[in-house]
Design a binder for these strands. Structure first.
Lengths: 279, 279
DNA sequence: CTGCACTATGAATCGCTAA
DNA sequence: GTTAGCGATTCATAGTGCA
């Protein structure tokens, strides 16, 4: 039961070494169905759920009750149709294993793969599915706050106007109310569930298409320094590097020794290159 | 069997008046489960699919073979969990009725409703599900090309709603242009499957749930002038107005006479207000 | 006609309390 | 037990009017 290691093997069995309720966060981008046949051998769409479920069961065992499981996935197109295995997976995880499907974040890929097809535009987004074991889970929202939009600067340049000082009610009975003056001294606001990130185009041949900012964001949001992050499909080690930079512990697993080796090299370089520093 | 009308009634039966293979595009935003109880009754999540499927069957009958069906929907949260009925609906439409699930566009709501909760951020996106009857369908990609954005800001900060220029038609779409070609000498590119639009916030009367730019975009993408667009849940008439401006025919249906009346008024005003105009 | 100030609006969600 | 109602929380945008 080691920390800060990249272990070669199938996470299904490798995780047996770890006790239950051990990890604070699981964030991963598993091989997609039919995709990357050359590295992982490819899992047929109709085999995907039976393949994934036993592993998800392990994840549930080793995840702390207040921990979070983030799954990055996007169904691909086959014969002009989006495959439905991701939708089925969400239903299976909730129904067969009792996971709570808490949220679906959207990762908007700002520089997505160029290309043109007669009946389809470029695919510029992926799903980031959040699952939890219970309704109450650890979340540190203040760690991911962003600067308030530039509307506020203009708005309050001349002080707060009359209307902004009053409490406005929405006409529909949704109960939305707001007092704009509340933002007068606010520098930071909370983000939404849409993430705007560019993809990193650095690594070729590897299976990680995860930009560093993605695990970074979720690690900051769902863990504290000293917590333990698991990536059961570590690929080139992006999650491990992000965790290290943020002073969290990590455990990475990959079935391919070649990927594990690359990840270890990258993590080691990281340690030499810059002892602390994020960004 | 009339064109350019708003019909009061349940689309399930009203559509009997129309022949099969009649409409070129169906674009609609049905009442979501448990939402808008004060206007529509509100449909329980577990009743949603049996409610929707027979109507979808009608849509399939009246849609042309090369036509497209666009469904705007988003599941809400109940007891800390996202409801799964939308996922189940997609599966039901493909499995039980043979619809092809061709694409899922994301509507990124740049000005989503504010709010703060201990375990959740603001919901800033909705689904735009595309279904077709066959693999080959009509699509006019050149009609929705956009000038290439200045991707100057490559900010790594996540969650920032920097206004991506992409598909950002300001105004009330009063100046909808069909010929984009004469748009300065900037390079035009095809958009992606992520649409960045603000909800409309006019300060007179209730505002439309659907921003005009949404039906506008899909009507341009999937139809030609003279084609026929159906919105079986027309609401305040946004789809009809968009179709009229683009010189397409429309048929709108709504179960509430009050909504039909509002839609007819709005469409009539449109006809008087601006005969053509390119802005 | 352009720019600036100001106003209006929203398919929300959670926790608590009352019935 | 379970549900229904209400208060509390919170941004970013488009339209209008006026200088």
């Amino acid at each position: 039961m080691k920390l800060n290691v990249v272990l070669q093997g199938d996470c299904l069995t490798v995780l047996d070494e770890y006790p239950k309720d051990f990890f604070d966060l699981i964030v991963t981008s598993p091989p997609y169905a039919e995709a990357r046949k050359h590295t992982y051998g490819g899992i047929a769409p109709d085999k995907y759920i039976p393949w994934f479920l036993p592993r998800a069961q392990q994840f549930q065992r080793v995840l702390k009750p207040e921990g979070t499981f983030i799954l990055n996935i996007k169904e691909n197109v086959y014969r002009g149709e989006r495959l439905t295995y991701v939708l089925e997976l969400v239903l299976a995880l909730t129904r067969a294993q009792g996971w709570l499907w808490t949220e679906e974040f959207i990762w908007h890929k700002k520089n997505c793969i160029p290309g043109k097809w007669p009946n389809r535009f470029r695919d510029a987004w992926e799903r980031l599915l959040q699952f939890n074991k219970q309704r109450k889970f650890a979340m540190y929202q203040d760690e991911v706050m962003v600067p308030v939009g530039d509307w506020a600067e203009k708005r309050f340049a001349t002080g707060v106007c009359e209307s902004d000082r009053q409490l406005h009610h929405s006409k529909t009975q949704s109960g939305v109310r707001r007092r704009v003056a509340n933002w007068e001294d606010r520098k930071l606001v909370y983000p939404s569930n849409v993430l705007h990130l560019a993809t990193e185009c650095s690594n070729r041949g590897g299976s990680a298409v995860f930009p560093m900012a993605l695990p970074d964001w979720f690690i900051r949001l769902f863990t504290q320094p000293g917590d333990v992050v698991l990536d059961p499909f570590i690929g080139t080690g992006t999650t491990a590097v992000a965790a290290t930079r943020l002073e969290r512990h990590y455990v990475g697993i990959d079935i391919l020794e070649s990927e594990c080796a690359r990840a270890r090299v990258r993590i080691a370089q990281e340690g030499h290159a810059m002892p602390n520093e994020e960004n």
